[in-house]
Design a protein around this nucleic acid. Structure first.
Lengths: 391, 391
DNA sequence: CTTGTTAATTCAACTGGATTGAGTTAATCA
DNA sequence: TGATTAACTCAATCCAGTTGAATTAACAAG
């Protein structure tokens, strides 16, 4: 799997316009609804420029008028809001045994969601399955094909050949393929390829707990433990797209040290419960066990809280985020328990008297997190000026 | 100390031109020398646009013609290179007891360097001292004042009120001041305020080991241990400018865990040597001790290598950088010893068969690192398109 | 040597999109 | 009711990049 990096590109009239359109859209989304003048002030553009752009966006159905804002002096500002049905994003998560697909509208609402098994993870089989899912999504929602802005694809990392490569988690047959180009071609749409934790982090930005945040970290409970980092509203992907492999980090414990993923992950829960003769194959059964007060599970949670707190402390000290978000394939109740049980480091750059958000937040995206994140990559891009990061 | 964050701004003719100028300058710097056509291809601009921009830059003295490149078919391309004396950057490092000042030319060469003591770190005293240093730099080098592109300022972090705040390392009297605005005003020039590790990281990018890198991490031996992170050529500063506080992270050891800074820092060396009755107040004396094969020092180095290797592993797994660079206030020989003594984690995303640079590099900027970095912030900005990150 | 080919560069006309400044509209305030 | 305030529109202007044709300077082949 080849990863392509973005490159800065020169500005001309056309690209400037595209940049400004996305900037305006982004302002409207963040504000919920705003008038032209306020956007102009915030963006450094003239009101006339904003006016022209808004006219375009309204004609194309991306923005809708919301009436006038009253109560202040002067001519009341005509408010605009993002039209959720102005565009849609398709997202898929590919795993060795299954494919998840979602479609989101421009505000990040899920309008389609589906999972199916995957008998072969080879490129042709995956592509056929994924195109079928796209067609299903289109026909089931009635969304016209030209309203799809792009496709996000989540695949298990790490990308490229690394010593962490583990045949069990990698997809076979994809090693030499530039997945981004491959899916762009298959869909006839711009495609974004990302790992699960990064995508999940963007899901929180688009429609979850990080809507208001531009610097945050997302701890992702997948099979292992991943980390998605967002700085200045952009993913920190690393040189080869593999940033955030926090699961492989060794954590200090009283007995010397432990690899984080072995202490905190779905696999670690399963192992612990199996040791008590309990089988909990999915999130639902875990949630049920927790509701029943299963001692083995509570035991695991309290045991996992310490290494997890160390991970949080690590992330806080290294990134200085506005907040650390916990989410992924774990029931909300368990995440809340972990958050409550975690002893937060007092001596941390994150421990500020003037902070407005809690240091820890629970993710909002639930069990389709990664596929949701895949689509969120596209939604987010629609609102992000591209001049500095054209592909 | 208030930290201001950048904001994305709309594109218009003027800002597009500025963006494109910086893009062109950046291409020329990276290439050493290039012709118009190649820049046009790389930047996505038309040759005509590049031609116009180059004409401007040449007239202003930022670029110089270098003759034609022969040997190929077609009209030989006129080569251009950055004129080192086309612009200069002023950099200062403020510490509680001393001020360092440097001036760099556009290629990152040091043209002035000075240190002096500081009796008071209060705003007015610092400002007076720093302006005097600027005047000294101008008169000693004969550089005209209007060739100074900006001033970089390094101050001890962390910024703002955090639980890490330690009166000994903070500057008194600055708490409520927006330093960036303060120094912009004092110098009558754009000023950038940064912590030591981040600035040092940029120094490596401008004139050190990271010239060719766009994703890297810099481990900075200051009084404590800092970390500067660069992703896509830009500093990852964190929400409040305090990213990179790696010194406060707890490392696993056989005996439980240790705060990294206590095992690896100038203070830790001093403590260890003092325990053996040795006093080594500065870098020079450390270098001398090492040349003499001082057993206590070798002992410390070998003892520090393990926690440091853990730090490197941490950074590699969390950022996936092209390389990790070690530098700061430690003699080169000691850094080389540490690099050689560090057992690198085999299981890491950084352990790739296809890597072209070593996982660990020694920084090139020597003892004035932080002040150099301060100036490098300005040099770097001159070559970085600002449309996406206008202040 | 000439002639053809290739590729960089320049010239001049064109164009897209942002700005500017004057004018219009719709609200609040006194 | 009139003054004030602020958002918005119109039309002219301007900046900077693009386009396509023309020019220039090398190499290559006969």
């Amino acid at each position: 799997m080849v990863v392509r990096l973005d490159q800065i590109v020169g500005a001309n009239a056309e690209r400037s316009r595209s940049h400004n359109r996305q900037l305006v859209l982004g302002h409207v989304r963040r504000a919920g609804q705003v008038g032209r003048a306020e956007i102009a002030r915030a963006s450094g553009l003239s009101t006339q420029a904003v006016s022209n752009i808004i006219a375009d966006l309204e004609r194309e159905g991306l923005l809708v008028e919301q009436g006038r804002l009253q109560g202040a002096r002067g001519m009341p500002a005509i408010q605009y809001a993002v039209n959720p049905r102005g565009g849609f994003a398709f997202g898929i998560e590919i795993r060795p045994g299954a494919v998840f697909a979602v479609m989101l509208d421009l505000l990040g609402n899920t309008v389609f969601s589906h999972r199916c098994t995957l008998s072969s993870a080879l490129p042709d089989a995956v592509t056929a399955k994924v195109l079928a899912l796209r067609d299903l999504a289109l026909s089931q929602t009635g969304v016209p094909a030209d309203r799809i802005l792009g496709a996000g694809v989540v695949v298990p990392g790490p990308f490229g050949t690394t010593s962490l490569k583990d045949e069990a988690t990698e997809l076979p047959g994809w090693a030499q393929i530039d997945m981004s180009a491959w899916f762009t071609r298959a869909f006839g749409l711009p495609a974004h390829v990302e790992n699960d934790a990064n995508a999940a982090a963007m899901a929180e930005h688009v429609s979850g707990a990080a809507r208001e945040l531009s610097h945050y970290a997302f701890l992702y409970f997948g099979t292992g433990l991943g980390l998605g980092l967002v700085s200045e509203g952009r993913l920190v992907r690393g040189a080869f797209g593999n940033a955030g492999e926090i699961g492989h980090v060794t954590m200090p414990t009283a007995s010397g040290g432990v690899v984080l993923e072995q202490a905190v992950s779905r696999l670690s829960i399963a192992r612990h419960l199996a040791g008590h003769g309990i089988d909990a194959p999915d999130s639902a059964s875990l949630a049920q066990l927790y509701d029943q007060g299963c001692p083995a599970l509570i035991d695991w949670l309290d045991q996992a809280a310490l290494p997890l707190a160390h991970a949080v402390s690590l992330v806080e000290n290294l990134f200085d985020p506005q907040a650390v978000i916990l989410g992924g394939a774990l029931p909300d109740t368990l995440i809340d328990h972990l958050i409550a049980a975690m002893p937060l480091d007092e001596r941390s750059v994150a421990n500020r008297p003037d902070r407005t958000t809690p240091r820890l937040l629970r993710g909002a995206s639930g069990r389709m997190t990664a596929a949701l994140g895949a689509a969120s990559l596209i939604v987010n891009r629609t609102f992000t000026p591209q001049l500095a990061v054209a592909v």
